[in-house]
Design a protein around this nucleic acid. Sequence first.
DNA 1: TTATAAAAGCGACCAATGGTCGCTTTTAGG
DNA 2: CCTAAAAGCGACCATTGGTCGCTTTTATAA
Lengths: 214, 214
Amino acid sequence: MPKGIPLTEEEIRRRRREVFRAALPVMTQKGFSATSMREIADAAGIGKSTLYDYFRTKDEVLLFAIEEAMDSMYSGALEIRNRPLPAIEKLYAIMKQELDTILQNKEFFMQIMVEAQKLGMHSQQRIIQMRYTYQDLIRSVIEQGVTEGSFRKVNSLLVARILIGAMSHVVYATRPTGSPEEMLNEVFDLIFVGVMVPGEAGLAALQARLEDAA
Amino acid sequence: MPKGIPLTEEEIRRRRREVFRAALPVMTQKGFSATSMREIADAAGIGKSTLYDYFRTKDEVLLFAIEEAMDSMYSGALEIRNRPLPAIEKLYAIMKQELDTILQNKEFFMQIMVEAQKLGMHSQQRIIQMRYTYQDLIRSVIEQGVTEGSFRKVNSLLVARILIGAMSHVVYATRPTGSPEEMLNEVFDLIFVGVMVPGEAGLAALQARLEDAA
DNA sequence: TTATAAAAGCGACCAATGGTCGCTTTTAGG
DNA sequence: CCTAAAAGCGACCATTGGTCGCTTTTATAA
């Protein structure tokens, strides 16, 4: 409704959220990229160009939801990181929380992950930046583990990436190998305990080879 | 050129490849999704509907290239798997070969990976099938490792996925933490040796917890 | 050599889409 | 109650993936 004065930041966010929520059913049913801006506007009960007053491009509609979801995810992880716990405990708690959050709205997050890949370059850049921020948070916990002596001197960023990447297999695996909780445990077992049998000859050989290369 | 008789399978593949190669420069420069079928046809020096005689949809153009690349990748991996080697040696050789192949045409593979995500549902299904086939190949090598006693009794499919996923960080990492070869070694170190310090209290605690959950 | 059937090739055309523009409606504040 | 400026709107535009009916070319049978 026209006001004669500009909407405040907060009001814009609220209206955006309203519009998005109203259009969510259509978008989840047809998929975001297959839903036209006309349909979104109709679902929200506003004119098409009014929709363009709230979102400058179609990408921004999805980006808005992604940012909100990522923000909430990040806050949750940050809170856990600041607890006085061993690194491995923090990592497990963060990943468990992330898992639970996603599973509560599995379809929604799945949609977002898939559709986010289809956005334009500019939107992708913003998503990448968010991802970096999250990666760095996890990385800092891994560095804590190295500092406190429970983790080996590993490439913390690489471990963070692999761990985060592994989570997507847990949640979105099209060929699940167990319940998500079981798979989460397996992921921690694999990455932190390691695949190879300790004390066995093959392990020593691998370590020697990696040593040589370095 | 019209022939009065249908093109053979092989001729069709050859023509497709010619058309694709001719259009490759435009597609790599603008990005596949941003390149229109008109532009592809022009680049290949044929009419638009002739292009549609070779490829039923736009997606099929990219899918054709993806299938060729994946096939070649798979053959290479299969050859290595059939050598008489310990599992860990095979895995390393496969991943090294994959890495080298991709690095030779880094931009091309990067494009493909990104653009493949934007294809329609039907094409995605075919890509997923190819991915499964490749996953199963890696998985079989991991199972060999378990059988021969050098790997712990792990979820082989999950390890395969994590390993394959980690490779993308090695190749496409926007924030690389070293040369690809160094990062490959780190990946093997992390996944097969494990992140945690052996014999340390934290490791025992983690293992106990994972044991309890199971 | 020539007639012909069928394949190869083509561009005008179609519906749908993201995005823009000029206009109308509504409202806060003087 | 007047008015300036914001909110809202749908007709319109260029571009896109894809289709259709027609023309051109050629292998082969007579």
